[in-house]
């Protein structure tokens, strides 16, 4: 697809010199001789956007978008490399990457943040909760989605609607009852409680994504496997699962990120030091000697952002497909 546009632009560019545009010229060429020069005139006008403005404007637009998108990330990173004193001398607040020998000789936030604050433990807690959530949610969602996509059972459609609707329900509305429930059964401040809660929040979306994927697979695959000697379940395990890896991976990532991103439930359910996740820790840090800890906060912020951004970049293709299809984009 990109190729087509490419050659099209190229054709238009070369054509501009001789006063014809690719498609227009072809069509004009078929016209009668008398009208020909007039037609070429309009053709050139129509192409000026294509040939003159668009190639420049698209780069300008891309540059603006990229600066806007990446500036906060850059800001957090560069400021994390500076000492608080240096930060307060930035002009206009636009930080530049300057190398301060002092900062690199031991006062660098990236070296000292681990001892100044228990960032290691925050990171570990965030990872445990995120990986646990992603694993549990993926397993549950794969089975549920296949069930919704292919198996028959009573109340199927109602259950599906209920499951999906659960996702749209704001977490803050569930926070209080869940808090009370988990407190009663003693799952507050446990990884188990956090994982269960996050899984429940992310599941509807994961089920929905995977159901769409399974439904798009040709049913003949399972039928063929059944003719070849599998049960329906056997066909699922032997034929469908192996070829669903991209979808399963993206669901895993989505669930991982939901847990990684979550502040509200993590704040409510993991209030002791052992279960504090990075987002919770960041907002707590802000409250304590903000100025003195500025570079630590920036380092923590960058760390919290960078890990999911790297994951997104790495899995961009899958995620774009997954997200795109999730909003009902067809074909």
């Amino acid at each position: 697809m990109s190729h087509e546009t490419d050659t099209d632009d190229l054709a238009a560019n070369t054509a501009a010199g001789t006063g014809t545009g690719s498609a227009e010229a072809n069509r004009a060429g078929l016209g009668t001789g008398s009208g020909r020069s007039w037609r070429f005139e309009t053709a050139r006008q129509g192409l000026s956007w294509e040939t003159h403005y668009k190639p420049v404007l698209k780069y300008v637009a891309l540059a603006i978008l990229m600066i806007w998108m990446l500036f906060p990330v850059y800001y957090a990173f560069v400021n994390s490399l500076k000492t608080p004193e240096m930060i307060f001398t930035t002009s206009l607040g636009i930080p530049f990457l300057t190398f301060d020998p002092v900062a690199f000789s031991g006062r660098n936030a990236w070296r000292t943040m681990w001892s100044a604050f228990p960032f290691g433990r925050y990171l570990l807690a965030t990872f445990v909760v995120s990986v646990g959530t992603a694993g549990l949610a993926t397993v549950c969602a794969v089975f549920a989605a296949y069930s919704f996509a292919r198996l028959e059972f009573p109340l199927k459609n109602s259950l599906f609607v209920l499951a999906v609707a659960g996702f749209a329900f704001p977490i803050v509305l569930l926070a209080i009852p869940i808090f009370v429930l988990l407190q009663r059964i003693g799952l507050l401040n446990t990884y188990m409680g956090m994982i269960l809660a996050f899984t429940a929040f992310t599941l509807p979306y994961n089920i929905w994504l995977l159901r769409g994927f399974f439904e798009d697979l040709p049913e003949n695959l399972e039928e063929s496997a059944r003719v070849d000697g599998c049960t329906q379940i056997g066909a699922f395990f032997r034929v469908i699962l192996p070829l669903s890896r991209p979808a399963i991976v993206s669901v895993f990532i989505f669930a991982f990120l939901l847990a990684w991103h979550n502040y509200l439930m993590a704040f409510i359910m993991g209030s002791d030091a052992l279960h504090t996740t990075l987002p919770v820790a960041l907002l707590e840090l802000r409250g304590t000697f903000f100025v003195r800890n500025f570079h630590y906060i920036m380092a923590g912020t960058f760390l919290t952002m960078a890990i999911p951004i790297v994951m997104y970049m790495y899995l961009q293709k899958y995620l774009v497909e997954g997200l795109g299809s999730s909003a009902g984009v067809k074909g």
Partner: peptide
């Protein structure tokens, strides 16, 4: 997608 990947709190 950097923004969408970043945690809201960060």
């Amino acid at each position: 997608l950097a923004g969408y990947a970043a945690p809201p709190v960060a």
